[in-house]
Each structure stands twice: as structure tokens, then as C-alpha cells.
């Protein structure tokens, strides 16, 4: 059933001196899914992604890309790939249309230029030089460049970083459309809600290894059936943590922010409110929520993804 997978990664390794940036990573990306890589800075996801994009050569390991086994990404494979780099650049004195034409010329087949411009809503800016574009427009052009060859596998490295909410939402629509067309997407993002909203499968990396993988639902469900109660306090009594710990599964402290994990929400909530009344400690920004991917990472590493 090889055709079900666009990409298989087997025991991929890459080290720089003593640093094992990628330390035996294996995963599969199914055809037509959005596969998201999460992890803090330095986790190895950028290096992994760069190997898969063909920028870096791995020390060892194997790739099965479009059904072909290879140790590094071949030029033939690149014909079917589109890449949005996190920090790519473009010749500032060329016009948007010229950039799209230039990149189209590198591939044996490509979409019509007007179609690409339309897809990323840059038709009106086709004649503008790159240096005169706004950050959001540049990002949209880069997405257009990544899609110019109508690729089967698309890498989007931090695609919505620096975009305003509307532009981000528009890009989500583009991603949904590509997915509907049967394209396979590999995504990295800092936005948890983006990962949860868009992804079919997620792998979480830390210290060059994959520490968890699965669908967003599976991952959050792996935490059990806890509900989270969050609030902020200013000047709690000394025994506050001990008292609250007794009425839930776990209490986490991050500065003045408190998170209580509980599987018995009504009981824990009642006890918390009573404690607040007795001690006169106000519960600022009190809210109840379900665990997210950030909580999954936190529970596995004791650190947040942004650290």
C-alpha cells in the first residue's frame, strides 16, 4: 500500500559536531493529509524539514518519496514539490509577475501565471516590484512561488508568521483548498490553534527526536479526561498550592498563572470558589478549557513550546 504514503522517513540522522540535531527520526506522511511538525526552537524540526526540502543532506537514514527510495531528495522529486521557506528571499528589483515566471521556468510543467496570481490574490500587484510589497504581500507571493509547479507535496514553514488575522484566515482557506485538491502538505507553525484547525496528523519533536505523534484529537486525549481550570492570583497564602492540590489531579504554576487539571470539574470548581471566598484571594481571568497541544507538550517535557 505504498501509494497511500507520499513520504516515509526512516531513522533520519543529522549532527553538527557533537550536536545531534536530528537523532533517529521516523514518520509517515499520508497522501492528501496535512502533517504538522511542532516543537520548540532547536528541537530539530527545521533541520528535518530542510532535509526533506532538499536543502540539507542527512548523515544517515532513508526517504521514500513518491514511492522512490533515496538517501537525499532527488531533482526529479523536486519537480513535484513546492516549498515555502521561512526565510526565503527574492530579487527585490523584479516584479511579482516576473518572479512567478522565473520560478515557473525551473519546472518541467507549471500552472498558468495568472492562475497562481489569482490563487494568492496578487493579480492587482502583478506589476509591482518585490521591494515595494508589504510583508503580507511578500508572504503571499512566496506561497504563489511554492505552488507554481502545481506540486503534489507542499512544505509550508511557518506560513502565517507575521500575517494579520485576516491574511492568516485567507491562507488557511488556501491550505483547505489544496487539501481538497488531494495535495499533501507538511506544515510547521507556532500557532497551536492553527495546528489543531488544519492538521490531520501532528508530530511533536524535542531534542532531535519525535516524542509524540498522532491526530490532534488523539494527542490531547492522551492526557486523559482532565479539564483545565485557569486563573491568575496576586498574593496567595503560603499554603495555597498545597490546599488546591488536594482538590484536583495536578496544579501547575507559571508566574502568577495557575492551571488546575481535574477530572471532576463541578467538585473542584466548588472547592476553588469556596477557598477563594474564605481566603479573600480574587481569581482573576478565571476560565475553564479543554487541554490543547501546548498542554500535551508541557505534560511530556515540563516545558512550553515557546521556550
Amino acid at each position: 500500500m505504498q501509494a497511500d504514503y507520499t513520504l516515509k522517513v526512516l531513522d533520519l540522522k543529522k549532527h553538527y559536531g557533537d550536536v545531534h540535531a536530528v537523532d533517529g527520526v521516523s514518520f509517515d506522511v499520508q497522501t492528501g493529509e496535512v502533517f504538522t511538525m511542532l516543537g520548540p526552537n532547536g528541537a530539530g524540526k527545521t533541520t528535518t524539514l530542510e532535509i526533506l526540502e532538499g536543502i540539507r543532506v542527512p548523515d544517515s537514514g532513508e526517504l521514500v518519496l513518491f514511492g522512490d527510495v533515496m538517501s537525499r531528495v532527488s531533482r526529479a522529486a523536486k519537480q513535484r514539490m513546492g516549498v515555502l521557506l521561512q526565510d526565503g528571499g527574492f530579487e527585490p528589483h523584479l516584479k511579482v509577475k516576473e518572479i512567478i515566471q522565473l520560478f515557473a521556468s525551473f519546472f518541467s510543467s507549471s500552472r498558468p501565471i495568472s492562475e497562481v496570481l489569482d490563487l494568492v490574490a496578487l493579480t492587482e500587484k502583478a506589476g509591482a516590484q518585490v521591494r515595494n510589497l508589504s510583508g503580507g504581500q511578500k508572504q503571499r507571493m512566496a506561497v504563489g512561488v511554492a505552488l507554481v509547479n502545481d506540486p503534489d507535496l507542499i512544505f509550508l514553514d511557518e506560513p502565517t508568521t507575521g500575517l494579520d488575522p485576516q491574511a492568516r484566515r485567507n491562507l488557511w482557506d488556501v491550505i483547505e483548498r489544496l487539501k481538497a485538491d488531494g495535495k499533501t502538505l507538511i506544515l510547521t507553525t507556532h500557532y497551536m490553534e492553527e495546528a489543531e484547525e488544519l492538521s490531520d496528523a501532528i508530530c511533536i519533536m524535542d531534542h532531535g527526536k519525535i516524542i509524540a505523534s498522532g491526530s490532534p484529537h488523539d494527542l490531547t486525549a492522551s492526557l486523559g479526561h482532565e479539564t483545565l481550570i485557569e486563573f491568575r492570583w496576586d498574593d496567595p497564602p503560603n499554603d495555597a498550592v498545597r490546599v488546591l492540590d488536594a482538590c484536583c489531579e495536578q496544579v501547575r504554576l507559571e508566574g502568577e498563572r495557575v492551571t488546575m487539571e481535574t477530572s471532576m470539574l463541578p467538585k473542584t470548581m466548588a472547592q476553588l470558589l469556596q477557598w477563594s471566598e474564605e481566603t479573600a484571594v480574587p481569581l482573576r481571568d478565571l476560565r475553564v478549557r479543554q487541554p490543547n497541544l501546548e498542554d500535551v507538550f508541557l505534560s511530556m517535557t515540563g516545558r512550553t513550546l515557546r521556550e
Binding site: 536543502i55 531533482r75 512544505f155
Partner: peptide, 17 residues
């Protein structure tokens, strides 16, 4: 300057040698 401006990096991910 194109290399420092990551322009070459953008070529790199295409089939261009």
C-alpha cells in the same frame, strides 16, 4: 548579496542545479 538575502536558498528548493 543574493545569498545573504536568501535568494539563492529559494532557488535551491527547486530542481535548478
Amino acid at each position: 548579496y543574493n545569498r545573504e538575502g536568501k535568494v539563492l536558498r529559494q532557488y535551491w528548493v527547486t530542481p535548478l542545479s
